[in-house]
Design a protein around this nucleic acid. Structure first.
Lengths: 188, 188
DNA sequence: CATCTGACTGGACACGTGTCCAACTTATGT
DNA sequence: ACATAAGTTGGACACGTGTCCAGTCAGATG
């Protein structure tokens, strides 16, 4: 059972939801997020539009859901590196690489997460908490609220800029390394 | 003459554009950005929808335009404070206050700026450059590319989080003060 | 005064959104 | 095996988007 989607989902519904999300993912890769339609995803999943809306409140919700699952299932929380700085840098690099690997999803999720849709809001908080948690784990004993705050702000900024196309996800790691170093140094 | 809107605008068109933007601003304050429609703005401006689309490519473009004008006309570039840190903090505080003063516009512009609409893109770059310029001026001799980069990232992050409703624009100043201090200190 | 031009209009268009509902098809359980 | 519930369906709905175009109108230009 999963509480991620619109309502709790289990048994038969879980399978349909799975097919729907898979179809969404494929459609995203195949046609890009501008062209993607809930109806086109539904068709690809072999399901009617009405049914699709049973699982997914909106395009934005679909994207948020896909992103959350990607983050949760495909991007492990690695803690590698000797110093707090190195470990945080490993996290931001990993996230940059993970996002660069799914450009369409990354492009779709940034605007999607700004939606005021309540289903999106739930996921937004979850995703935010996940980021914080990754940084917290990387910092270890060095973690303080102020430091986490600063790191999350810088990271969010990078996500926003990448979402705007001002920087690439591939560059994100490189751009953030010195910023992370400075932030951690400044909190010493 | 102005090059800000869809095309260059002068004479009679300049007046109509002015009325349209004013109406947009009023409509935003009055009904919020969820309810706002290009057609409703057009009506308020006493102009047909077809005409409105002559000046403004999309809702997103309208919001970006309004925000840019607000920034450019109503938010002066102040440089106050004795140290680079204090001056940068003055900038972020001022921006936070300026955004808090127009909550509907702030809420509207964050998603709007992510649009791939070319008219939005132009404004996005202009606005980004404006931010950089403010920080540059505040830093004075202390400005380096890496430092600017870090500050802009943190600031963008704050904008994103405020846009998401995770923090308020009023809190933005307070939240950014220590972050700014740490970033500048880390680059010393 | 006649004309020409640029601004504006109204209304139709194709499309996507998200909602609703009565009817149908599967499962489930007694 | 049959009633009941759970899941799905097609199709219509009201609405917003952004585009297009023939037609009107006012004001400069000759």
């Amino acid at each position: 059972m999963s509480t991620t989607a619109r309502q709790a989902v289990d048994g038969r519904r879980a399978e349909t939801l799975g097919r729907l999300l898979l179809a969404g993912s494929d459609e995203l890769r195949a046609t890009g997020y501008e062209a993607l339609t809930i109806r086109s995803v539904a068709t690809r999943a072999g399901v009617s539009a009405a049914t699709a809306y049973t699982y997914v409140a909106s395009k934005n919700h679909l994207f948020a859901e896909l992103f959350w699952r990607y983050l949760d299932h495909e991007v492990p929380q690695v803690v590698s590196g000797d110093t707090p700085v190195a470990r945080v840098q490993a996290v931001t690099r990993q996230m940059g690489a993970a996002l660069a690997a799914v450009p369409e999803l990354a492009a779709a999720v940034t605007p999607a997460l700004l939606s005021s849709d309540p289903d999106v809001e739930r996921l937004r908080l979850r995703i935010g908490a996940d980021f914080v948690h990754r940084f917290e784990a990387a910092l270890g004993d060095a973690a303080t609220p102020a430091l986490l705050d600063a790191l999350v702000l810088a990271f969010s900024g990078a996500l926003l800029q990448a979402g705007m196309g001002v920087m690439t996800y591939t560059d994100m790691g490189d751009r953030l390394d010195p910023v992370v170093a400075a932030i951690v140094a400044g909190h010493a």
